[in-house]
Amino acid sequence: MRLVAVSAGLSTPSGTRLLADRLAEAVHGELEPQGYEVESRVVELRELAVAIANHLVTGFPPPPLAAAIDAVTGADGLIAVTPVFSASYSGLFKSFFDLIDPGALTGRPVLVAATGGTARHSLVLEHALRPLFAYLRAVVVPTGVYAASEDWGTGGDAYAEGLPARIRRAGSELGALMAARSADPEPGDEISALERQLSDLRFD
C-alpha cells in the first residue's frame, strides 16, 4: 500500500512535519500487524514552494512537483497536515491542492490534521480542511487531529484524550479505510462477477 503524507510546515525542524510523521507511524501500526506492506512518502511543500508558484503561472510543473502530484494522486491513503495561518490552512497548502485535478482524489481515504500555537484554532479542521477535501471528493476519516503547542507531551485527562491517543485513533481509522478499499474488487472484477451471475441465470 502507498501512504503519502503532505506537510506544509515552513520551519526546520517543523511541528507540522513531526505530526505528519507520527500520523504515518500510527497508520503503519494499524496495517502492518494485518499483513499489509506499507510504503510511505512525505511530500514537503516547503521544498516545492517556488515550483508551485511557477506552475500556477505557467501551467507546467517541473519534475519534482510533477512527481509529488503523482504520488498524492496515486496514493492508497493520504495524510494532509498544515500549519494554521489567519485561522485557516496556509497559502502554500492551498496552492498545492489547487494543482490537484478535482476528480483525482475521488473516494481516496484522507486524514486531515493541523498545527497551531493555540487550541483556539482547532475548528480549522471542520471549517476549512474538511470542505476542501469534500470538494476534491475524498473520504475524510472521522477523527481530525489538531496539535497546539501545549498538546505535545500531554496525555490528556479524564475528560479529553491527549494528542497521542488522537493520533492513534486517527491513524487506525485511516488504516481501516485503506484496508477496506484494497479489499474492494477492481471495476473489471465487478464486471466479470456480474457476467458470471448473468450466465448462471436459467430462463424457463
Rank of each mutant, 00 (worst) to 15 (best):
M1P: 14
L3K: 04
A5S: 15
S7A: 15
G9T: 06
L10G: 14
S11A: 14
S11P: 02
S14Y: 02
G15N: 12
R17H: 08
L18E: 14
A20D: 04
D21S: 12
R22P: 02
E25N: 10
A26D: 02
A26G: 11
L31N: 00
P33S: 08
Q34A: 14
G35M: 04
E37N: 08
E37C: 07
V38L: 15
S40W: 09
E44H: 12
E44I: 01
L45V: 05
R46E: 03
R46K: 13
L48K: 07
V50Y: 10
I52S: 06
L56R: 09
L56M: 13
V57D: 14
G59C: 09
F60I: 14
F60A: 14
P64W: 02
A66E: 14
A66Q: 14
A67L: 08
D76P: 04
G77C: 05
V81F: 10
V84A: 00
F85E: 10
G91K: 07
G91S: 09
L92A: 10
F97H: 02
D98L: 06
D101Y: 02
G103D: 12
A104R: 06
P109L: 03
P109Y: 04
T115H: 00
T115G: 07
G116S: 07
R120T: 07
R120Y: 01
H121W: 05
S122I: 12
S122G: 08
L123P: 00
L123K: 01
L125M: 04
R137L: 08
V139W: 08
V140M: 04
V140S: 07
V141K: 08
T143G: 08
V145K: 00
V145S: 05
Y146E: 03
A147C: 08
A148Q: 02
W152M: 10
G153C: 06
T154E: 13
D157A: 09
D157N: 15
Y159Q: 14
E161R: 13
G162V: 05
L163H: 04
G171Q: 01
E173G: 04
E173Y: 03
L177E: 14
R181C: 00
D184M: 15
G188A: 09
L194A: 15
D200K: 12
L201M: 11
L201A: 11
R202W: 12
R202D: 10
F203G: 03
D204Y: 11
